[in-house]
Simulated scan of single mutants.
Amino acid sequence: MPEQRRVVLAVTGAGGTRLAGRTLGALAASDRVGHVDLLVSANGRRLMAHESGADAAADPVRCLLGAPSPKVTVLDPEKDFAGPPSSGSYRTWGMIVLPCAMGVMGRIAQGQADTLVERAADVCLKERRPLILCVRETPFNLIHLRNMTQVTEAGAVVYPMIPTYYNVPRTVEEMDEEFASRLLGFIGLHDDDTYEWGRGGR
């Protein structure tokens, strides 16, 4: 039996929340992931509702996956500031923020823990655990770039929500699936179905 990880996944107020659904589904389906703490900000809920057509008050897991999952615990970042991921004694593999709003990244860069999202990210940095920030913005201004540099120097990884094209995706769903697969491969949860250049590639 492989070692099972505990992973924190945060959804903040930036477009592309369906990628969070793809990633959450893959984490929940992995036999190497035992538990996922899902943090959805107020703006993240609004974006999820806008992009999925669901009610903003709907259960985030049902909204992202279409059904509940026994592996997933939902925490409200504004109300559950003292939730388990707020402490370094709560042992996790690390944290993915997907999508990561630029304001959230800026607060992480400055050490401003206003909600459980920023506090959990701060814990990952101080405990030297992986922190993956999937930013979604274009173009980047100088403040964005400086904040990216600062979080990278602190130990985080900036992983922009940029799709691949060399695998010649034919649908938006294929692009989403490839991004989620690459992201999980990046954190060591490789999927054998992920496109790989040179392995039957072009």
Rank of each mutant, 00 (worst) to 15 (best):
M1T: 06
E3A: 10
R6T: 06
V8R: 14
A14L: 06
G15W: 10
G21P: 08
R22Q: 12
G25H: 13
S30N: 14
R32K: 14
R32G: 07
V33Q: 06
H35A: 15
L39F: 09
V40C: 08
V40Y: 04
S41R: 03
L47M: 13
M48N: 13
A49I: 12
A49M: 02
E51Y: 02
S52L: 15
S52W: 03
G53T: 09
A57R: 09
A57V: 03
A58I: 06
L65F: 01
G66S: 05
P68W: 05
V72A: 03
L75T: 07
D80H: 05
F81G: 15
F81K: 12
P84S: 13
P85H: 08
S86D: 04
T92P: 12
G94M: 11
M95R: 04
C100D: 05
M105S: 03
G106V: 01
R107H: 03
T115G: 08
E118W: 13
A120W: 05
V123K: 12
C124S: 01
L125K: 08
E127K: 15
R128P: 06
R129I: 01
P130Q: 07
P130M: 06
L131V: 15
I132M: 15
L133V: 04
C134R: 03
C134Y: 03
P139H: 03
F140S: 09
N141T: 06
N141G: 12
I143G: 02
H144F: 00
R146T: 12
N147E: 02
M148D: 13
Q150L: 15
Q150I: 14
V151P: 08
V151M: 09
T152I: 15
A154F: 01
A156V: 03
V158A: 01
P163E: 01
Y165W: 07
Y166V: 06
V168H: 07
V172N: 06
V172A: 10
E173K: 00
E178C: 01
A180V: 01
A180Q: 00
G185L: 01
F186T: 08
D192K: 15
D192V: 11
D193W: 02
D193L: 13
E196W: 12
W197L: 05
G201E: 14
G201N: 07
R202K: 11
